[in-house]
Design a protein around this nucleic acid. Sequence first.
DNA 1: TTCAAACCTTTGACATTTCAAATATCGTCC
DNA 2: GGACGATATTTGAAATGTCAAAGGTTTGAA
Lengths: 171, 171
Amino acid sequence: MTESESASVDLEIIVQGAQEGKKLELRLWLRMLSTTKLISQEIRRRLRNEFGATLPQFDLMAQLYREREGLRLGELSKRTMVTNGNVTGLVERLEADGLVLRVTPDGDRRVTVAKLTEKGETQFSAMAAAHEGWLRDMMADVEPAIISELWRDIGEVKSSVSNHLSGADFD
Amino acid sequence: MTESESASVDLEIIVQGAQEGKKLELRLWLRMLSTTKLISQEIRRRLRNEFGATLPQFDLMAQLYREREGLRLGELSKRTMVTNGNVTGLVERLEADGLVLRVTPDGDRRVTVAKLTEKGETQFSAMAAAHEGWLRDMMADVEPAIISELWRDIGEVKSSVSNHLSGADFD
DNA sequence: TTCAAACCTTTGACATTTCAAATATCGTCC
DNA sequence: GGACGATATTTGAAATGTCAAAGGTTTGAA
């Protein structure tokens, strides 16, 4: 068993023990966090094993795949919820792998636009199909009605959180 | 719930579902991920500004706070869903700050047990109280009934995911 | 007893992450 | 046209994250 596989599936159960006097919000947050970590790790493992890619790279390419003309790095930063400095490095590595191209438009030389190469589009297209299948498989035991309901209600949570941020906010 | 609210919610489902042609599972995953990132970033920012601490450090200390006798690093790794190698560095830094103590028990010299110092307990206790308040604030606009429902349904998702991991390891 | 397998942690190479400060360019106001 | 504020990206330091491999230590079976 590799190290990454040893991660516990029951983080949240351990964290909160039985279910003592913990507040609803805290319990929900712990469960959201552990579930998200669990799914992320699974996707990360499969991306690595089957495509030799990382999750942040996949996320970034997903944005570029939706905008074939490319995106400015700042826009990429907003959409992926990753800091500017981080985007710089991610795009650098993807460019080194021939998956992404960087262009500075004539109009504004402050700007860098990243777009997928032919190779990048091909590769992402394969990854995206697999990615969608993995998620369907992982959530196979959950009723579609529950999934829709979750999507709606998590939207409410996201909305509430967005309205109660202390500092600079996304979106 | 008012009439207009339920109408708009239903509309949104129909529109979104037909519009993107995306599978339910994928849409749910993207929303879970962005919401979790949003909350994480807010907590990280507040931990940093108000306590000079990081989120991984907080998570690790939370586990040690629940087990006053301390925990082996491997157990810490499972509970925090962080790799062993990563735990080593985290504990190292916390020990350098005087928040955590490392001990090798006489019985088994392969093992390292980490436990909170007095200073660590005091500091974590303050952070935990604040942390719980932040979550209550962020989710203030969400009905308690919805929060409970989310907690249950995300539990179903987590359960389904756990049963469909490629690594297929269970505790 | 002995030694190979199993166990626990650390190490090393990289990738990702944040924040803050530095660079570079643009647009505008005077 | 020159200085200034706003915008866009990069850089640098430190922390976190993964994975694979290496280090000790213990255990169990021959």
